[in-house]
Nucleic acid binder design. Sequence first.
DNA 1: TGGTTCTTAGTTTTT
DNA 2: CTAAGAACCA
Length: 730
Amino acid sequence: MWDNHTMNSSLLSGLNPEQRAAVELPAQSALILAGAGSGKTRVLTTRIAYLISTGQVSPHGILAVTFTNKAAKEMVTRLSALLPINTRGMWIGTFHGLCNRMLRAHFREANLPQTFQILDSGDQLSAIKRLMKVMNVDDEKYPPREVANFISGSKEQGLRASDVEAYDPYTRRKVEIFAEYDAQCQREGVVDFSELLLRCYELLQRNQQLREHYQARFKHILVDEFQDTNPLQYRWLKLLAGRDNALFAVGDDDQSIYAFRGANVGNMQELLRDFHVESVIKLEQNYRSHGNILDAANALIQNNRNRLGKNLWTDAHKGEPLRVYEAPNDVEEARFIVDEIQQLRREDVRLSEIALLYRSNAQSRVLEHALVSAGLSYRVYGGLRFFERQEIKHALAYLRLMENTDDDNALLRIINFPTRGIGARSIEQLQESARQFNTTLFNAAARAGGKVAAFVGIIEALRNETRDLPLPEIIDHVLQHSGLVAHYEAEKTTPAKRREAEERLDNLNELLNAATLFVHEAEDDSLTAFLTHASLEAGEHQAGDSEDALHLMTVHAAKGLEFHTVFITGLEQGLFPHENSVNEDGGLDEERRLMYVALTRARRRLYLSFAQSRMLHGQVNYSVMSNFLREIPEELLHWLTPRFEARRTFSSGSQETASYVAAFGAAHSEPAPPSPQAAWRIGQRVFHQKFGEGVVTDAEGSGNDGRVQVNFKRAGSKWLALEYAKLTAL
DNA sequence: TGGTTCTTAGTTTTT
DNA sequence: CTAAGAACCA
């Protein structure tokens, strides 16, 4: 036992009054509105430490939920630093991780096999495709992607197939697929991500004894990033909280950027009502950014309706203004960024302290190209993750099938990989026979003869040979004897292929390392546990983390991170905000929150850049500056190029114009002659040199400064800046 | 069965 | 443009 008094004073020292109030709240439900950089994680972990050290609850009675494994890990790390306790047995994890834990503990009650496997999004998609083939569903009319979203979306609303109300034949068919898909998963002993949550929710709902057990246990439930919870997650929390437990939710409605995937910010309002929350505490003091950056973020986000309301402030200096750069095109934008980074390096800013953010992944290309040319090292985040690589998925499929022969998904992935002469024809026969005998593919394969039976022999041999071996040895054995290693060794034919094959072999080796590490760190070092780990933690990044490199990522991926310098690139209408979002309701607001997240990533320096034209889908696209940039007060900005609007007032031939053209000539080497046409009318037929014939469908601005939307016969609908696009009336 | 060419689509995606 | 997937041929 330690001295409560000293422990508390050291715990609470350094907290501001609001943070402290949040930490010291009595045991009742609360909502903490925590702005960007306001010390949210610190409050969450200190709250846990406080509850434990004041004896209000034992570590055993805490349930702490996050969305990412990274956040969960960080919480554990920080907690261990605050308190001399063993965090191992504590229930701190992601929604999915915790649900998995409960389902494993009560697999019988949940009607699952002990070794049930978890399908990631890719596995789920292939399971759906396979099923749709069996059901004879037209995948043109029902794109598997959409069906997958429909199923996951329904589950995230807490709905089973039988609960979905379908009023049209189209939806009815999707519901049928949904029902069949669930039946298939059940047969095969697998669960997808949303099933993990729904199954756990149903388990607690139906099983009074279990529910009461956990309700009695978790007196304090703490949730991070509460604005990102979906309806099912919220119901799960409500169920566990029951009538008496305290739900401590931390979130920021202004940083809700996952509504497109089912997150429901409305949960924050519901929480206030359902839990009779008396204490809403706002954490508005920001410890991250300089004043100008926060002022810009505040000004921007004020344009959103339906906010809970919050304004960030800081004790820090105003700092520099935000630097704005208008480039003639995407390549020049990248070149500018490279120049600035080289300058920053001379000022001793480390590369790893600089982030290049963009709205969509495709934008990284141009940037990467410029960085490679300049010899600057960088790292693109959010690419293919370790456990999602083809060769890793293959290796895992062997392991999964050994563990659970009902897993048809796994079987289909490897029955002919490496190739062993089992083609589409044989597989079809196998599926037919499995259906006939109402059994799994593996069982059907065992009855078959020839190559198919040989495959069954391979799996059974692997199983027998690895029985009772430690995990890394199991994996090593499987890699060697499945033929995977030999397959990739044999791929080393041409130099180009050799590099690829070597990389894949390296990754397989890395899988072995991952398993070794896992055995050392995990409480449960069984194969099942490792496979679960592989599904739930697709694995951050491979080696090379130590190198000083720039960070390239989407704005979504940047949430929760911070950098000395941030470049927000591609600030153009149609790109950011993205045109697809503008049509969805609430879409523009979500885009604005995304911009808010982007702005608040920067500690000291922020660059905002946009390009007049950019290569998109292989065609040059012209666009105008993002409205989000217009929403930032002028006095916070420092334009590195002449301001967009200012140029319009130039009279031709003036000195200013001449110097401007000299400096930024690339895009203006062929200044568009003033169009004789004063304004384009909607419905006007026009001709464009590159896109051909089209019809004006919309117009903005006036005269030569505006832009028009033209629906081209060949090239589709486009927005064109009249200043640059040469349109002829037809 | 495996390599080729053709077609088509192209936001964001913690698990 | 370019990457993935399907259709297509050897």
